[in-house]
Amino acid sequence: MVVSGALMGLVYALIAYGFQLTFATSKSINFGQGELVMLSAFFSLSLLDWGMPYWLMIPGGLLFGVALGLVVERTCVRLALEQKSEGWILMTIIFGLLGFSSAENIWGRDDRPFPTSLPTDALQVFGVNITPLEISVAIGVFTVMGLIELFKRKTLLGKAFEAVSADRDAAELMGVSATRTIMLSYGLSGLVAAMAGILISPITTVGPTMASALILKAFSVAVVAGLDSGFGVVLVGIVLGALESLTSFYLGSGWREAPGLVLLILALAIRPNGVFGKATIRKV
């Protein structure tokens, strides 16, 4: 039970990782990230409905996520950043609301099951009951995060990404276009959101309300770990997921949302830069 909770936590960590990607390059995040998860999950479900095989659906859903991420960057973020305003906060929230009502209109208000090709029988691993589906979550999360980290460290484009995070002006002086790098980060962030949707949907269900539940927790994870903490989100995600399943078991499922909020408040009170974050001083 704790293990399944921890695996759920990995999905929170993955969404939080999406926040980190855009925060690194542009110091902005997409508050509609939960809706990106939900819309990509719905789109992937439709792909299956249209008869697309399961293994083709995954890249299809991911591409859709990338496209959504790019749309968010172009419509909600770029102008605000050019004006050096914080308008992206409101714009991405509005994008989320738009995504929510669009999903209700296109796919309906009801939660729908997401089919899976994996067997549902639990396996015994080290004396713990665990389903192949839950294992697929762990594999999916680590694969995506691992590949993106590999891209950042091993390719020149990835190093340019890091350079923009470190010093945007200096990166521009090297010929790196900060605008394109921010686009790239939003595309990757959309990909990560879509992956989270595809991984979690077979366990939960797909519905318009899944967005708000997920984003709250992903946000807690991102803030508790720190928006520049790298793999710190994984640890915090696992802890939060495990705590959630413990509280809902011992205190009732109504308390399920509590640990995330308590952790968030504690973190903001004690370590506002995050448990794994670096203290940054804003020079003016």
Binding site: K159, E162, A163, S165, A166, D167, D169, A170, A171, L173
Partner: peptide
Amino acid sequence: PEGRKVFGPL
């Protein structure tokens, strides 16, 4: 540039 601006973490 002034102040060198190397990429510190890299």
